[in-house]
Amino acid sequence: MLLEVRDLQVEFKTRDGIAKAVNGVTYSVAAGETLAVLGESGSGKSVTAQAVMGILDMPPGRITGGEIVFQGQDLLKLKEDERRKIRGSGMAMIFQDALSSLNPVLSVGAQLGEMYSVHRGMSRADAKAKAVELMDRVRIPAAKERVGQYPHQFSGGMRQRIMIAMAMALEPALIIADEPTTALDVTVQAQVMDLLAELQREMNMGLILITHDLGVVADVADRIAVMYAGRIVEEAPVHEIYKAPAHPYTRGLLDSIPRLDQKGQELYAIKGLPPNLMHIPSGCAFHPRCPMAQDVCRTDVPPLANVSEGRRSACHFWKECLNG
């Protein structure tokens, strides 16, 4: 396995108390595999990714338990300086909003070249040549002329391509893409996702795709992990989860996708609100919103049970859910 996150726990100290953002997340990614992490805002998907990258703001954040094993070593036991060297060359991250993720006062060429000067100690001219090469690779037209331009002179899709180029620059083994297409319009979304998937195949990288867009996931992901209240509630190969979800929350998510044959009808929505991370409900965190909830859900935390090969669900009634 390329990356294994085991029982990761992260909390944030706030003025009103301690918010438990991640409560025992376990997932793994193999080389060349795409894992989609799905969940609403506040479900802990981004925080888990930041903990893996080591860019969590600490304080207020704090990792209270678990392991993050990357290429055989536990990242949480490394010194900050050793972790820094892994960032960029071993694993890299693509952010949601490329405009705000690129420095407005530096030309894109300077920012791309920085990857090589920081990690490889290349000269300025070599780094610039590499930057042009990278821009070509992510199919930015007229790369040679545009290498000296500034981020605001590029369109949204082009900027996201530059972010991808930066992340890919040192051919890391793992890429974490945090909602990489959310800020783009639909046609550009597809192009950017295709590019990402293609580069991933070419370099045989592991990809963690964080998203709340089920449509994006279906095309590119191999496996899906659904998160709720800082926990993984269901993990499954992508086609199986669409066929028959084994957790009522996943079912709710799938039912809230707009469908053509339901035109004119009211769109389904999971009732209630995401839980307050300061006061996570007892037992199964989803029970106040769950249509299948029974007494046991209020008291007992459901374990992540094996449903079938490579498939797990954290629901007391996964069998009932699976059978509809």
Partner: peptide, 9 residues
Amino acid sequence: QAARALGAT
């Protein structure tokens, strides 16, 4: 944050 994620000191 992005610079940090890409290994800047």
